[in-house]
């Protein structure tokens, strides 16, 4: 009966993942490996960026809006924020579908999301990346790594660490069923600062991590060390988010850009 319960929980989490995220690894890999009839529009310089803004991301940039005359770096930063806000919204819905999460203390739910969403976001972002670039605008565009590197500082420092993480993370060859449990494990983490009912969350975390371990053994029988490797990725993601939060604070201080109120809430007093 216990094994049946574990399989049910794993299935519920995977279904919640497929239902709540507009992009997943299977979809992204289909596009990135050229198996779609509509290949993504490649953004590799200022000209192709402008073309993409007029078509793919017109809604996000607001072609008639305040950002129209701003420099490319600021417009790209704004687009990144829009995507982040959408993913945080999706992650919140996903978290609410994880059995037990909604019955946690509401303050603890806020804390788990505050500290977990960016780690989860960067773990999932890897699915949309290859060594040459990143899918954007729901897979209708592909922005090259070289173009992102060529932006002026500090904006050029934004994505390269995520590419470096993604290349190592993608080498583990996780699929969406693995990622669903991994993202749930990131969110249900008992050592976030300021949690009230730690033991309640630790019970949830233990069962999710245990299911993740069993699932990896069954889904990747050739890689016996996949589970410990993934545990190390949790630590790497925490470091990646710490550095990202510092960079965003620097941009906020030195650049004339606004930060979305939801992201401000998350970054404020984070680390």
């Amino acid at each position: 009966p216990q094994l049946a319960d574990q399989k049910t929980l794993a299935r519920q989490i995977y279904e919640a993942y497929l239902k709540n995220f507009s992009m997943n690894k299977a979809k992204a890999r289909t596009i990135l490996t050229g198996k779609t009839s509509n290949p993504p529009f490649v953004i590799h310089d200022m000209e192709t960026l402008q073309l993409a803004e007029q078509t793919l991301v017109a809604k996000m940039v607001g072609s008639a809006g305040a950002l129209k005359d701003r420099e490319a770096e600021v417009r790209i930063f704004h687009c990144c924020q829009c995507t982040s806000v959408e993913t945080v919204t999706e992650l919140t819905e996903f978290a609410k579908s994880v059995p037990g999460f909604s019955s946690l203390d509401l303050n603890d739910q806020v804390t788990l999301l505050k500290y977990g969403v960016y780690e989860a976001l960067f773990a999932m972002l890897a699915s949309s990346m290859n060594k040459d670039g990143l899918l954007v605008a729901y897979g209708s565009g592909f922005i090259t790594r070289e173009f992102l590197k060529s932006l002026r500082r500090p904006f050029s420092d934004m994505m390269e660490p995520k590419f470096q993480f993604a290349m190592k993370f993608n080498a583990l060859e996780l699929d969406d069923s693995d990622l669903a449990l991994f993202v749930a494990a990131i969110i249900c983490c008992g050592d976030r600062p300021g949690l009230v009912n730690v033991s309640h969350i630790e019970v949830m975390q233990e069962s999710i991590v245990h299911i993740l371990q069993l699932h990896l053994l069954a889904n990747h029988p050739d890689d016996a060390f996949l589970f410990p490797k993934l545990l190390q990725k949790l630590a790497d993601l925490r470091q990646l988010v710490t550095e990202h939060a510092q960079l965003v604070q620097e941009i906020k201080k030195t650049e004339d850009t606004s930060l979305h109120p939801l992201l401000q809430e998350i970054y404020r007093d984070m680390y």
């Binding site: 996000m60 919140t92 609410k96 739910q109 806020v110 109120p261 404020r268």
Partner: peptide
Amino acid sequence: LKEKHKILHRLLQNSTSPVEL
């Protein structure tokens, strides 16, 4: 904590309210 995270709090309590982009 809820006071400092009003949007997160709202997202947790109500899935239908959109977040302005």
